[in-house]
Design a protein around this nucleic acid. Structure first.
Lengths: 154, 154
DNA sequence: CCTGAAAACCATAGCCG
DNA sequence: CGGCTATGGTTTTCAGG
């Protein structure tokens, strides 16, 4: 169940994490297999849990979400209740795309997006108002996505 | 071409960014449309550039990439040549999933993944060796993904 | 702009090397 | 395990409201 992944499996994973809209025929051609053999491999990889799902990637800028921030948040305490309350609240805010609990000082890093400066002011106020237990907030704006997520190294 | 996006379009985008493997029939049912009408809407959204692509999301932990870092990098200078050399090099390192040029001090934030502490030591040395113009590096480890990317707010 | 049916296409299972 | 073939389902197109 675990390790038996060969070069063809890796090729399949590499291919579909860049573009999952290909036909089995095309995918097979790409990795050097017939469509049916390729399909069998893919199903097996899915069953073994290597594939978490299939999604459409939307164009952030096209949707008007041109600003992106990494916001560092420190909490007033690191008690379980404080952390749990914060984490529960953070999950309900759509502009917060991701939230990571960081090693070191029990800080969080949030990745947020919004339309423009006005929207960010609103969002910032909203975050401070709705997230409980905040001690410090520091916003870092991304000027440019130099390298965008293009898949895991497999 | 730009604004005419109604509630059904948004429902379609919300649905496919969570799961793009549904049939047109199911997607149509979900948004209250026949398969053909839904298909026409989807094609139109693609043509208008709202959809950047379709991808398989791989399971990071299942692939053994259990560690994740946000690495802050400062460069020795902010001349165009320094920045360009750094950015070109950063794109070639597979473990660097993303790289952002940050506002403020011409710093970068890199999101990197790796297997374990040993792999991180290797990767860290590799980064310092291969990325030109580095003045300072500070690695922040994510202990836990509190909220994982689940799509843009649309 | 939608629905519903027809046509083209594709995923998928069975069977044999 | 992989290839080939057949079939059922899905996407995609088209006629009509």
């Amino acid at each position: 169940m675990n390790l038996p992944m060969d070069d063809i499996d890796r090729k399949i994973l590499r291919a579909i994490q860049r573009d999952s809209a290909r036909s089995m025929q095309d995918l097979g051609d790409l990795v050097g297999l017939s469509a049916s053999a390729c399909h069998r491999r893919l199903k097996s990889l899915e069953e073994k849990g290597y594939i978490a799902g299939y999604r459409a990637m939307l164009d952030r800028v096209r949707l008007g979400l041109s600003m992106q921030f990494f916001i560092e948040v420190s909490l007033v305490s690191q008690s379980d209740t404080t952390l749990e309350a914060f984490e529960k609240a953070v999950k309900t805010i759509p502009e917060v795309l991701e939230c990571h609990l960081m090693a070191g000082q029990s800080d969080y890093i949030l990745r947020v997006v919004c339309e423009d400066a006005t929207a960010f002011e609103r969002l910032h106020r909203d975050l401070v108002a709705r997230l409980p237990g905040i001690a410090r907030v520091h916003s870092n704006m991304s000027i440019r996505e130099v390298k965008s997520f293009g898949g895991l190294p497999v």
